[in-house]
Design a protein around this nucleic acid. Structure first.
Lengths: 344, 344
DNA sequence: TTGTAGGCGTTATCAC
DNA sequence: GTGATAACGCCTACAA
């Protein structure tokens, strides 16, 4: 095995021409002799020559690598999202540097740092659920690394972001439940800091208000998304004198934990109490008790859009047509999906 | 926003020293004046200087980027695996370039090509289930890019690989079933080409043989892992005159599809027929009918080992202590995990 | 049509 | 202790 990879220099040496000639021949430069061109290209092929991307990237100050940071890849929502990101990346010959924050701001900072060191062309991130400071991300501006936030976006304005506004979707869901006769609708929300939680809560309150009912804050619980916390919330709801007729949960994982608790406490799922949720993950169709309805958030589509936005930003940047302080926000419209309750 | 990132050169200019001095001061070179050193380091900090990894990698012919190609990230098995890979990578300051093959050899080739172009330091791959030619991967040798296969490994010898040998585990599982009184044990295997299928089949046959029973090939079906194919296999098994007492499925996804079919055809899961499986994915605990037992394959551990092996290879390489034609194989021991059947 | 030379940011090897 | 210079592989203006 010849350890030395072929370079333009080596090709030039063997052919007794200059490196520039080789470089031009390989890139089909117009002003190049046909004979020389074919000669060079043949030898290049024979030697299995491939341009060294590291050198090119170094020179061009680009790497075609975009960093992607997600909380947990094993959540189907995020694995779908990264697939969308990858699809858009491939189309435009970009590649993905991968990292997880595990919902830990410290680790998130660390991963951001690694990406910064690697000098990725850009960074796409879905924030850790505890992150409420964005210095480490805004600092990337200094390194000329654009950031696109998606799904879990920060509560600040002047940034690029792609997300699914669940305000309206939640209102619709509450209406749908009332129309089916569920009067007392409870809500297990996510961490209050999350933008996503705020939207959902707003939508829920709006939905209840529209029904001209008094808002009962006993019907609203929060979970930090852990199983224990969700069980705790369920405990409170089930111990109410007037148990809810329906429970809206923050997402399908919370749904599964909530249902698990309810089942253990002899609640007939979707009979005694109806459960509805967000995300509409494929995996729920295999579970014992899928939610009665779920709000589809199109993670694949969100990921794809985020990457497409990133590419647009990068192209504008290299074309020098960037308008300073212009920031893009793209919203993805959620959809309410009904499921048939499983007959048992 | 100053578009120019600070460089050693810029620092040198401002301090009226040479670039070498700056470089040395920043890397704590022994022969450097304390005054100069602090002066340089302070300015560097003030300017938010960060060495340009692209330039360094280019010079050092290393990037600390390892490519990782998986069939489907949304399978929990693989998202666990990549988490193990990431953990080991972080420990050693490596990063991960991510790509999926979607079990499509064409796409796999394409992704391998992208990684080659990016000149990753190494490549970790779990093969697409259809891949039976390895030229595109062995060609990476020419570019001095080592390959570590994991879980779905090729049926050839002289390569680095990490996998979980299920031969013995399968035999144990069959024994366990016989001991609990299940005499007719059927088996829905995966694609025959897969190394993993061969091992499982061998283990199954060994298990049946040890019980001094005649092997009945009607009890052995295969699936291409799609839902339709699995349903087809189930259809055949359920239409047998002597239905199996227990069914071993290739993995938890096949299990879920198989159970779904059985349920639709009025089989009492784990009563009429017992179901056992491989992988032991966390998600099964939320499903309607988890397998009675499952063989844990430790995807996280496998991924971690694969990355650790890769790092060892890379270190040997750069230390120049590589022994040619030496290839490492690491096996991970699977474990049989019992579940309590869900009471209904 | 082809060659020469400079530069991208860094580090290592000389010299002083 | 510090400075000048070469080198990594490639591209490209400028020269010829």
């Amino acid at each position: 095995m010849d350890n030395k990879l072929p370079t333009v220099k080596e090709i030039a040496r063997r052919l007794n021409v200059s490196v520039s000639t080789v470089s031009r021949a390989l890139s089909d430069h117009p002003r190049i002799g046909l004979r020389t061109k074919t000669k060079v290209q043949e030898l290049a092929k024979e030697m299995n020559y491939e341009p060294n991307a590291k050198a090119i990237f170094f020179k061009q100050r680009k790497s075609f690598i975009v960093g992607v940071i997600l909380p947990y890849i094993r959540e189907e929502f995020f694995s779908e999202a990264i697939s969308g990101i990858e699809a858009a990346a491939m189309e435009h010959e970009y590649t993905i540097l991968f990292g997880q924050s595990y919902d830990n701001p410290e680790r998130e900072k660390q991963v951001v740092d690694t990406m910064k060191k690697q000098r990725v062309d850009g960074l796409i991130i879905s924030l850790s659920k505890q992150t409420n400071k964005y210095e480490h991300l805004q600092a990337l501006d200094k390194y000329d690394i654009p950031v696109v936030y998606f799904d879990r976006v920060p509560a600040i304005e002047n940034v690029h972001k792609v997300y699914c506004d669940l305000y309206q979707g939640t209102t619709e869901m509450v209406n749908w439940l009332f129309n089916r006769g569920y009067r007392r609708v409870a809500f297990i929300n996510g961490p209050e800091k999350l933008q996503a939680s705020k939207e959902r809560l707003k939508g829920y309150l709006e939905g209840v208000t529209r029904q001209k009912l008094k808002i009962d804050m006993q019907m609203v619980e929060t979970t930090d998304l852990s199983k224990e916390s969700t069980h705790q919330a369920m405990k409170k709801l089930l111990s109410l004198k007037n148990r809810p007729h329906a429970i809206v949960t923050f997402n399908d994982y919370v749904h599964m934990d909530a249902v698990q608790y309810a089942e253990q406490h002899n609640v007939q799922i979707n009979k005694d109490i109806a459960f509805v949720s967000y995300a509409n993950l494929p995996i729920t169709s295999y579970t014992a008790f899928p939610p009665l309805a779920s709000i589809e958030q199109y993670p694949y589509g969100q990921g794809k859009k985020a990457m497409e936005l990133m590419i647009r930003i990068l192209q504008e940047k290299s074309a020098g047509t960037t308008v300073p302080d212009t920031h893009h926000t793209e919203k993805v419209m959620p959809t309410l999906v009904m499921h048939h309750p499983v007959a048992r």
